[in-house]
Design a protein around this nucleic acid. Structure first.
Lengths: 259, 259
DNA sequence: TCTCACAACTCCTATACATGAGTGAATGTG
DNA sequence: CACATTCACTCATGTATAGGAGTTGTGAGA
């Protein structure tokens, strides 16, 4: 026989096959972005029926090792470079250099960042956002939705929410490009001096909408980051809600030791 | 017909069925820990074959909505309460109150925390750990592996690594219970005063080992947290590597606005 | 009463087959 | 040459069927 899977074992056949292919991927015999043998080829190769092969490939999909496209085939997933989001990306010095936070963080990862503004305009505040902003649920707030790309592939979808009475007075916030240093620079110019940011990190599987927005395969994990920007008077003037493809980001935080 | 799934639509039948059951779960008509109808029952109910029903249930499994046990049935997963890990859990005041970090953080979630020590002893440092500790890969370091439970279910596996020359002098670090305030209290008692902690957050799918250690279903997302504890002389005297079930934790961080 | 074997139920693996739908290249036609 | 058609390939959905394996209750026998 051309190939013997893991000899005899208690494991079901489809897992043996999945393990065998996984091993080939990890050993580099199947390179990233390379096509793995078609279902019919695998059926012959392992001498099993189509159903079994399909279950094996499905297993690899849920492990996140391959992606399959109908009509084309299954391909070894290539791991995109990770970009680090360090907690000092909000330094004013970055803003004074004219850089918005996302530029400061991605340019050091060696990838070309791009932004696409999806929408800017008033929306009624969702519950969690309203609570964070200290307004009532359903109140009018400004939402800025945008999609970030690294080297052309979408990696991150972010929505900033601002209380209407804050946003109203700052015309740049309604522009696609809010100007050098991003919206945080504009907010500080208008007297909202930031004291701190608080970030909430969650991880979960992408919903259908999120998966399609970030062109992920279903079942991909995402990082859900929600940030409050708090001014020196203790007011939250912006909440930023971000969905990130989990395999493309690493978050770094510094926690000073205090009493 | 007893039940009409979403009428006609482009969606495949098995997804319609999965959506229908999901809707029943979300609406509370199928309560947590309750058994969902058996495969044969669902076959009759929706008038489809076993394969289709099985795919529908598989879909619900990957979504994390149900768990199925061979020979018993499928059950709606009861979501354990999330525990927040806020960045002030390392305050010395908590330690002085005799509380280790994990106690301080879980007891406010209303769940009963338990710890099981898996192993304590010298190991040779893995690459990433060695780099963080500033020692050579393979050097002898002390590893403390432990498994945390919330209300009896495992949620978190953590391994602390300490340079051997630091650990050697502190006998309590080799005990299962290092005493009030945890190992950080012992380290500070021995002259290692902490200046800051740096945490690195990643999210990904659980490996087979991680899934079984935390008794997660395969394909579950996890949060991978790695923390350096840095002393006032700039030395990293501990690295803590933690795997958490993603659906049970929320991480909170405060980032002071600086220049 | 207790124990053990069995039946009846659950889900799991695997086969074989039919049909549908997306992709891409070769081919033919204007 | 440009364009549409065809065809061979891919995976996706769904049926029907068979046997295996884990779980649980029940009933016969000691």
């Amino acid at each position: 026989m051309a190939s013997t899977v893991g000899a005899r074992s208690a494991k079901p056949r489809y897992l043996q096959i999945a393990d065998d292919i996984e091993e080939q991927i990890r050993a580099g015999r199947l390179a990233p972005a390379e096509e793995i043998p078609s279902e019919t080829a695998l059926m012959e190769r392992y001498g099993v029926s189509s159903g079994t092969v399909r279950k094996a490939v499905a297993q690899l999909r849920t492990t996140g090792l391959v992606e399959t496209y109908q009509g084309k085939g299954s391909f070894v997933k290539s791991r995109p470079p990770v970009t680090r989001k360090s907690s000092d990306r909000f330094r004013r010095s970055h803003r004074r250099a004219g850089k918005a936070a996302y530029i400061a963080e991605t340019e050091q990862a060696g990838v070309k960042p791009t932004v696409q503004v999806l929408s800017i305009g008033p929306v009624s505040a969702p519950a969690e956002i309203a609570e964070r902003l200290g307004v009532d649920e359903g109140d009018k707030v400004l939402a800025r939705r945008r999609l970030y790309f690294s080297d052309g592939t979408p990696t991150e979808e972010a929505t900033s929410y601002l209380p209407w009475d804050v946003a109203r007075d700052i015309p740049e916030l309604f522009e696609e490009n809010p100007g050098g240093g991003g919206i945080y620079a504009r907010l500080e110019e208008h007297g909202h001096e930031f004291a701190e940011y608080t970030e909430t990190v969650r991880a979960r599987l992408a919903t259908k909408q999120e998966a399609s927005a970030l062109s992920l395969s279903p079942g991909s994990p995402i990082i859900h980051l929600t940030r409050n920007a708090v001014t020196t008077v203790g007011r939250v003037v912006e909440v930023c809600d971000t969905i990130m493809a989990a395999d493309q980001f690493v978050l770094d935080y510094r926690i000073p030791a205090t009493d």
